[in-house]
Amino acid sequence: MKRSRFPLWVTAGVMLFFYLPVVVLVVNSFNQSRSSGPWTGFTLDWYVRLMGRRDIWMAFRNTLIVATGASAASMVLGTLAAFALHRYRSRLQDVHYTMIFTPLVVPEILLGVSLLLLFVALGVERNLWVLFIGHTTFCISYVAMVVLARLQDFDFSVVEAARDLGAGPWITVRRVLLPLLAPGILAGGLLAFTLSIDDYVISFFLSGPGTTTLPIQINAMIRRDAPALINALSSLMLCVTFLLVWLSQKLNKESRT
């Protein structure tokens, strides 16, 4: 039987569609043209200019602080939540599951608006802590889902073996359970880190003067600066993201074998 070629063509078209913007962006970061119009010649000038911008470095610093804090906090909270969801079947866990699952599907703007209004009502100023809280809130759910998936494949007989051999509960958790689950937990943390760096909407609502993150900075630059400068910054961020993804893929493979 001859299969239709149609789905294959659609797939090829979709792939082209997916890569077009990324390719255009990276190519234009080496383009002399300020407006990223037609190709006018190769240059590294945009990258050099980028290094001299203090506001970008500040935004970069804020992004790193928030992403590190939020991924660390959500790694702890998300892992605990995943253990609870995996081990228990109760009314409490039904509520727990709903609370963990809902932030994954609620539009980000609602999370951003509601947290902003909470902080306004409490009279809290918009500082990096506010951003940290916002990012942690949506990262917990992602970490919990990643770790939960690992737990479902996890062979719990090693835990029982450790207990049979006389290890106490604390030793079992620290010396057996956590080391074996570490790659999964780290993969969740890396996902949280990537999501935090990537986040625009929640940061838009929660960042104030002096707490600009990179995506917010980029949006401000879209309105003010030469597109070519943003292309250069974007290309650099692409490299960082790819590195993180490659790392988390590696961790994923390790935890599976």
């Binding site: 913007p21 990324v22 255009v24 962006l25 760096i197 990537d198 625009y200 990179l214 995506p215 980029i218 949006n219 879209i222 597109p227 943003i230 974007s234 961020m237 692409l238 993201t241």
Partner: peptide, 9 residues
């Protein structure tokens, strides 16, 4: 890749 960057592209 960053969402805002894709939109910008």
């Amino acid at each position: 890749t960053n969402f805002i960057i894709r939109v910008f592209a």
